[in-house]
Every structure is written in structure tokens, then in C-alpha cells.
């Protein structure tokens, strides 16, 4: 681990200002991902700004009838909150499907959105990865590479990594918005669908955040009701990243929303695919995964996504 300096921020605004000002600075909250990455030499920040003590750990009701979730609310607290459990059950289900109890206790809402991909080539500093070292290429896209966990859609010739969050998939289906403070002290609102960037030629650019900008909250619109499900499919029963996950909100009239995890660089949802829900899983996936470019090893994800949704639609 490279030596680094550390400070505790006094306010969100001050944290953002400092992050923009200090070369090589990063925020740290729960540290469940960043500290691992630092140990492995994947991230090497020169300065850490601890934002865990800023009081952004409350869930408040909004004037619009939704909820404003502070960026430092732990995954455990968020999934257990009675309002979330009652009105946004897909979010509780998704969070509970992720990581382990210990990690969820430490992991924060803002940090969860910012976690890095689990692509094994990203994690191995001996291999080429343009996310890790811009322009260095992609070992996952070369002959003989192991790609079974990687993405099938929204990917590019430079990167086929996925975003690993479960929480974000549920937030996407709930139309969440991210609230930030910029280094100049402005508040900005970014719809989650615009937050995670597709890799294109610049896979190192992962979010819409500007340098120094700090996530302060995630807001959920008023509850939309319906039956809310999250099915995370993986090889073992727990403590594994999704091969495919499906977040579903289904209304009594058959309409609804679908988002996928484990297949793309961001939670994957399309309005045109939502519109196909009354026509069944095949129709939804024909739209949602149109243009997918799986590898030989990820081809199964196309079938798996459709079958997982079909099973959810068959549930009473």
C-alpha cells in the first residue's frame, strides 16, 4: 500500500472543496471496497478524506412523498428501515442479497453506488485493464480469457466489465435520483440512469461525478406499489456477485418495470422494455437485451435473464 495522508471532513461542502483541491484525493466512508483495492495496489490515493462523520446517515421523508436516503446510511440500516421494507421492498430484497452481514454493516449507500467492478482482470495488476490503467488494453477481451462473470450489453471493445451492485439495480427500477454537492458548494441532482457511464473508449470514466463532487443522498420518488421482487442468480446460495439479477415491479394490470444486474456496466433498464411486460419475459428481454454482445462464456446470461424474469412473472 502506498503511503497516504488522511483527514476527517467537517462538512460535505468542505469535503468536496478539499477533494477538488488536493491532488490524488479520494473520499472514504465504509471502506469495504476502497481499502481492498488499496491493499491490492489497484487504487493508490495520495490523500483520503473521511466523510463518514458528516451526519448524512438519516432517512427522511420528502415533500413529494418519497424518501431521501443520506449517503452514509449503511446498507444494513437501509434494508432494515421500516419504510423501505413496506414501500420499496425491492430495495430491501436487493440489499439483503448482496455481500455479507458484516460488509453491509460497514458499506454505505453512496459507497455502494461507487464500488468498482469485480472483473478479475481489473483485480490483477499484472494484467491489462483500461479501467485501472487508462489505455492499457483489456486482458478480458483477449483469446483464452475467462469472461463468465462479465457483461453482455452496454459494453464496448475496450471493456466488458459489469457494475456489481445489487442495491443500484433496485434503485434503478425505483427511479432513484442522486444528490451531490460540488466543490463550489452547489447541489446537483443526477438521475441514477445517467449516473453510471458506459465504457466506450474511456472505461476509466465510470460516473457522471465531476472531480471532487460528493454524493450526499439518494432520493426515491413516492412509492409506486405493485409486487416488488429481486431475484439474484449465482452459483452458490450467498456471498457471490450476480451472474444475473432481476428487479421487478409489477402492477395488478400487468404493467411494470424491470432492471437487470450482472449484465452491464450499470443497472440495465429501458423504458421500451418495461412497456413489453404485459407481453411476457421473452418480449421484455428481446428489447432489453437487444444488441447484446456476449462472449461464448456469457451467452448463457441471455437465456438466464429471460428465464429468471419468466419465473418471477409466474410467481403468485
Amino acid at each position: 500500500m502506498k503511503a497516504f495522508s488522511f483527514e476527517r471532513a467537517s462538512s460535505a461542502q468542505a469535503a468536496a472543496a478539499r477533494a477538488a483541491e488536493v491532488q490524488g484525493a479520494k473520499f472514504i466512508a465504509g471502506g469495504t471496497n476502497l481499502v481492498d483495492l488499496m491493499k491490492l495496489g489497484i487504487e493508490a490515493p495520495e490523500h483520503l478524506i473521511d466523510v463518514s462523520g458528516l451526519g448524512l446517515d438519516r432517512i427522511e421523508e420528502t415533500d413529494e412523498g418519497g424518501l431521501r436516503i443520506g449517503a452514509m446510511v449503511s446498507n444494513t440500516a437501509l434494508s432494515a428501515d421500516v419504510r423501505i421494507r413496506r414501500d420499496y421492498p425491492v430495495l430491501t430484497r436487493a440489499i439483503a442479497a448482496g455481500a455479507s452481514g458484516q460488509l453491509r454493516n460497514k458499506a454505505t449507500t453512496g459507497g455502494n453506488l461507487l464500488q468498482r467492478t469485480r472483473c478479475p482482470y481489473f483485480y490483477d495488476t499484472a494484467q491489462a485493464c483500461s479501467k485501472r490503467v487508462p489505455g492499457s488494453g483489456c486482458s478480458a477481451l483477449t483469446e483464452g480469457a475467462f469472461s463468465r462473470q462479465l457483461g453482455v450489453i452496454g459494453t464496448s471493445d475496450a471493456c466488458i466489465a459489469t457494475h456489481p451492485s445489487d442495491m443500484a439495480v433496485a434503485m434503478r427500477v425505483l427511479d432513484a435520483t442522486i444528490e451531490t454537492v460540488t466543490p463550489t458548494g452547489m447541489t446537483r441532482r443526477i438521475p441514477l440512469e445517467e449516473f453510471h457511464l458506459l465504457p466506450g473508449d474511456t472505461p476509466e470514466k465510470e460516473t457522471a461525478l465531476m472531480p471532487g463532487e460528493l454524493i450526499t443522498a439518494v432520493t426515491l420518488p413516492a412509492p409506486v406499489g405493485g409486487i416488488q421482487r429481486y431475484h439474484k442468480v449465482r452459483d452458490r446460495a450467498s456471498y457471490a456477485f450476480a451472474l444475473v439479477s432481476v428487479a421487478l415491479i409489477r402492477q395488478p394490470d400487468g404493467s411494470g418495470r424491470v432492471a437487470l444486474g450482472g449484465v452491464a456496466p450499470r443497472p440495465w433498464r429501458l423504458a421500451a422494455a418495461d412497456a413489453e411486460l404485459p407481453n411476457g419475459a421473452r418480449a421484455v428481454m428481446a428489447r432489453l437485451l437487444d444488441g447484446a454482445r456476449p462472449t461464448e462464456e456469457t451467452q448463457f446470461k441471455i437465456t438466464l435473464a429471460e428465464r429468471t424474469l419468466a419465473a418471477l412473472l409466474l410467481e403468485e
Partner: peptide
């Protein structure tokens, strides 16, 4: 999982 291009276990 074997990377058959590089000859090592990836995971």
C-alpha cells in the same frame, strides 16, 4: 478458471 491464453488461474 484457466486463462488458456496466459496459462494461469484467473479467479
Amino acid at each position: 478458471a484457466l486463462d488458456t491464453g496466459r496459462g494461469y488461474f484467473v479467479n
